[in-house]
Design a protein around this nucleic acid. Structure first.
Length: 288
DNA sequence: CTCCAGGCGTTCC
DNA sequence: GGAACGCATGGA
């Protein structure tokens, strides 16, 4: 992606105008259930606010393929947000690969236009998707927020308001398990706590270093409370492993229902995980 | 009241 | 190896 960047000011607020982002849709990308810390601003219309990688961001999308990021300079954009939105990936090529594989995947890709797979913090993705199991998006958002407010570092939010970064595993382990339970995460409390220990022991770097996604998945599955479904989401959203695909889960549940003609999952190719997300979002945004 | 929300571990056969 | 069930919680 070779987007162009311009600095300017709105009133006295410095901002960055980014254009040339292709079919990127900010609202759909942030709202589709892959991340849980971005919401519409309560004080600014048509504006979205959120936290990722320890930074607060307020931004808006004036038109397709462009973005306005407030209080962000070019250095921060390149270092943090360009990677977060995965603008360093060739989405034209990814989409073309998926579309060429079958009529069903072509339909799925068309129905999920503008959606990109984000590159989230690895630990945040791990914990967020442990929380996601047997849960709904508003509640997942509430729990991730509660976790951040209780254990996370205070960071500068919009207009002097405070915001909280997603916590470190050390911060969570510094308090007893009972305090995690008190946040009402339910039976997932022990899963989160033991995941924190594994992360402190360096499991995230082991996963990153795994030569194949299958080997990375094997390491994640060794953690208590993590099965194929959560593993695939974490690999996809936290580790940029776009071929991560929770085959057994999806065969039995959504996929057969969404696309009854699809049987050969091995033909999904190197972007199988992205394709699977497109199928899910196609159902959610286009067919209903 | 029951059923559901992008599951997983344990316990059976 | 696969089906049944329990696990917390809150909303419809």
């Amino acid at each position: 992606m070779s987007e162009s960047i311009q600095s300017f000011e709105i009133g006295s607020t410095p901002a960055l105008y980014v254009s040339g982002l292709g079919d990127f849709s900010l609202a759909r990308t942030l709202d589709c259930g892959q991340c849980f810390r971005f919401n519409e601003s309560k004080t600014h219309t048509s504006t979205i606010e959120g936290i990722a990688h320890g930074r607060f961001l307020r931004l808006s999308q004036p038109r397709e393929g462009s973005l306005v990021l407030f209080n962000v300079d070019e250095e921060e954009y390149t270092r943090v947000w360009r990677k977060f939105f995965s603008f360093d990936r060739d989405w034209t090529a990814i989409r073309a690969d998926i579309e060429a594989r079958s009529p069903e995947l072509k339909e799925a890709a068309a129905g999920a236009e503008g959606i990109r797979i984000l590159t989230q913090d690895r630990f945040e993705a791990l914990v967020s998707f442990i929380i996601s199991q047997c849960n709904n998006i508003p509640r997942i958002k509430g729990l991730v927020e509660a976790l951040s407010e209780k254990y996370g570092e205070r960071i500068e939010g919009a207009g002097g308001k405070c915001a909280y970064a997603f916590p470190t595993p050390e911060a969570i382990l510094a308090r007893p398990l009972s305090e995690l339970t008190a946040l009402k995460v339910g039976y997932r409390d022990e899963y989160i706590y033991s995941a924190c220990r594994a992360v402190c022991d360096g499991i995230l770097d082991e996963i990153s270093a795994a030569p194949t996604t299958a080997e990375a998945e094997k390491i994640i599955l060794s953690m208590h409370g993590i099965g194929k479904k959560v593993a695939a989401c974490v690999l996809l959203f936290g580790f940029g492993r776009y071929d991560a695909f929770p085959v057994d889960v999806w065969m039995k549940r959504a996929l057969e229902r969404l696309f009854p003609g699809v049987r050969d999952y091995s033909a999904f190719g190197p972007y199988a995980g992205v394709a699977q997300q497109y199928m899910f979002y196609c159902e959610r945004y286009t067919r209903k």
